[in-house]
Every structure is written in structure tokens, then in C-alpha cells.
Amino acid sequence: MKYGFFPGCSYKGAAGYKESTEAVSRLLGIELVEIQDWNCCGATSYWSTQSIEAYVLPARIMALAEKQGLSEIVNVCNACYSTLRKAQEKLAQDNDLNEKVNLALAEEGLKYTGNLNIRHLMEVIVNDLNADDIKKHIKKDLSGFVVAPYYGCQLNRPWADIDDAHYPVLMDRLIEMVGAKPLKNYSAKTECCGAAHMVAHKDLCMPLNNRIVKDAVSKSAQTICTLCPLCQFNVDASQYKSGLPMVPVIFFTQMMGLAFGLSEKDLKLQKLLTPFKLAV
């Protein structure tokens, strides 16, 4: 299966996200075709400061994909995913804005039509593959491994169409599919980690992250599984020298890799700030 792929700026630097995504996709036969010469999506920073550029950035990414003949863009970051979708949605509603965005893109000979599906890799794996296609790669028994599925905000909000806005279940199903145990009553699964505010308002955001960690720890999760580099970083880094009980925070692709028998080293789990050691 072939998909357009938008890695986004933080993919490469995220702890083993790239390595695990590549390894797992290869095994599953998912071909991720990187959008050539993609740029930063702009994210919240541009929404907060610019009216037209905020649309031009994601539109350029989507126009590049269209030029490459791709019909779907798979994201691995919640912020990228929501930025692209949001831009697509508004551009479809606002002709005037659409015209302006295309005027800007024409400077580089690009054209945005919006004829694309914007998706997240986790959802692609759960919805497009058969459970058996995933299960057949399982090499390691994770049946004692309790995983807290942490979805963050922007995968299901504001749309709530691929899953529930507050209590989604898609990643729970994925965890189950690879033979691990999803933490069933993980109430913090869509609590906010503070996103970029962790930089400027760390004091205000720490309690938010503490809640996410504490709910997992107190309910005996052995790891928190994420699907966004910023979520992963915040929840992981918030535990650094916090003095509270800790729990490692990994990417869903790393969890899949573990089940598929890849080594912790291959999955770059040593890059995590909260140390990870599989003990099942």
C-alpha cells in the first residue's frame, strides 16, 4: 500500500519515531512516499499570528503532494495532521481565501485543489489493514504488557469523525491487535499536555502532564503510548527530575516494533528520557 507522507519538522528529532515508523511500515508493506521539498506546516504558531500565510504553508505541502500525484497524505504528528485538515476545510469553504492562497502558490508554479485525504498513520494502520496482516508479524508475546493509550488533543478534536473526541478507542484496538493490553480505564487519554506552552509556561503545564502520568501509573500501566512527537516529548520530559513515580512514554510504532520482535536498540528506545526496559 502506497501513501503520500508528510514527516513534519519534529519527526526526525523525536526519540526513535523515524526509525520505528520506517521499520514497522516496511514489515507491514506500507510504502510511505515522502512529499518532495515539504515545508513546515506552521501549526499553532502561524494560526496565532498570520491570516494568509497560515493557510499558504499547509497548502504548499498539499499542492506539492498533488503535483506528485498523491491522493492521501499520511501524518505522524497530531499538529501537522490537524493543521492540514483545518486548512483544507477552510479553503473549501472560503473561495476568496482559496484564490489568494493559489495566487501565492503560483509564484512557485504550484496549484492547490484540495483533492486529498489527510490522515494519521495510526488510523491508517488500524483502518486500512486487516487485523491478520498485523498479527502475522507478531514475534513477541506482550500479553502482560499494560499500555496506556495517550491520544492527545488534535487527532480527534475538533472533528471527532474518525473516533470519539474525549474517549477514543482506535489505538486501544491497535494495542490489542499486537497482543499487548490497553489500559482500559485510562481517563487521561485525551487530556492536554500543554503543547508549545510547555516552553513559555512550564509551571502551568506541569500539572497537566502530571495528571497524564499519574493516571497511567496509578492504574498500573507499564508504558504510555503516544502518536505525536510533541505529546511524547512533553509527557516524557515532564517526568525528568520530577521526583514522582515515572512511566516511559513511547511511540505507537515503537510498541508495534516491540511486538514484531525488533530490538529496543533498533527502535531507538534508549533515546527516551524516562528509561524504557521491556519486562514482560
Binding site: 474525549h166 480505564n185 481517563s187 487521561a188 487530556e191 500539572p207 495528571r211 499519574k214 493516571d215
Partner: peptide, 8 residues
């Protein structure tokens, strides 16, 4: 807004 078992 929310009912939760997460206590502070």
C-alpha cells in the same frame, strides 16, 4: 465540562 476519576 467533565466528570473524571482523576483526582489531584
Amino acid at each position: 465540562s467533565q466528570i473524571t476519576d482523576m483526582v489531584d
